[in-house]
Amino acid sequence: MSYLLRRIVFYVFTAWAAITINFFLPRLMPGDPVQALIAKEQGQLSTDAVHSLYVLFGLDKQQPLWQQYVDYWGQLLHGDLGLSFTFFPTPVSEVISSSLPWTLILVGVTTVCSFMLGTGLGVLAGWRRGSWVDLVLPVTTFISSVPYFWFGLIMIELLAGPNSFFPSSGGYDPGVVPGWDIDFIGSAVQHSLLPALTILISSMSGWILSMRNMMVTVSSEDYITVAHAKGLSDRRVMLSYAARNALLPNVSGFALSLGLIVGGTLLVEIVFSFPGVGFQLFQAVGAKDYPLMQGIFLIITLSVLAANFIADLAYLVLDPRTRKEG
């Protein structure tokens, strides 16, 4: 149990760190950032936007920093992330909550699929090494070096078109009213296929490579030889002896990869104009909508922390050593 407790403490600490970074980032800017921004935009900012900037940078009232920090936490616990000024006067939390489900479903489904498929293919590639399966290596190396968004562009160029089944942009048909009915869900799934495929192929190669290398490392262990000598079937040795042990580093490597995959997904959304958090971040960056940008950063970070926690739970089930300690 102590393993689980340690992880929970760690995630609470990390969430605190992320929130604190989010608080201090705009306040660490040298000079008067709002004036700099107004000058940069050459008077194209509305007075509302200017005001919400002053609030964000903590320049609206003469309070000591710790007082601002306490207030910030108070607002945050009420779900108040400030006002977005691209969608003024909609609160940031409302803007994000409209786009978050799109991203969560897209990332969730594709990440789980790519982890399972990639790990499975990696097991085969590592076990059957030296045969034609080794051809997988150069191909996956190349694919994993391609930026997600560029791969998305190529997918659109090749697969989407005026007469194609795959739509090239948007989250659903303009003619469909969002709601829980067959028409809308069908249309949403159709629009998600191409972005999902892009993320799947791009992110899968990383899992294949790392799983293959772990399989190769594990398969020269003595206990594999013993398992063979016992006369167990090749399949059983591969799955229950080699893959089971090779899987552990892959699961714990989830933490690093998840951040990368989420980053890549944001970009794929931009390319496909998918109505998720990434596309919104893109719009916010274009409009210099700092409250929205910071809110999105916070939400993404918290989601990644939650996903990591789930990965930790999986690790707890897979590796008996973590359970023994306590």
């Binding site: 995630y11 990390t14 760190a17 992320a18 970074i21 933490a255 690093l256 998840l258 951040g259 990368l260 989420v262 980053g263 944001l266 971040l281 999105i296 950063f297 993404i300 970070t301 990644v304 922390l305 990591n308």
Partner: peptide, 8 residues
């Protein structure tokens, strides 16, 4: 390591 780098 856990905070997603690209958005940051």
């Amino acid at each position: 390591l856990v905070i997603p780098a690209l958005p940051l």
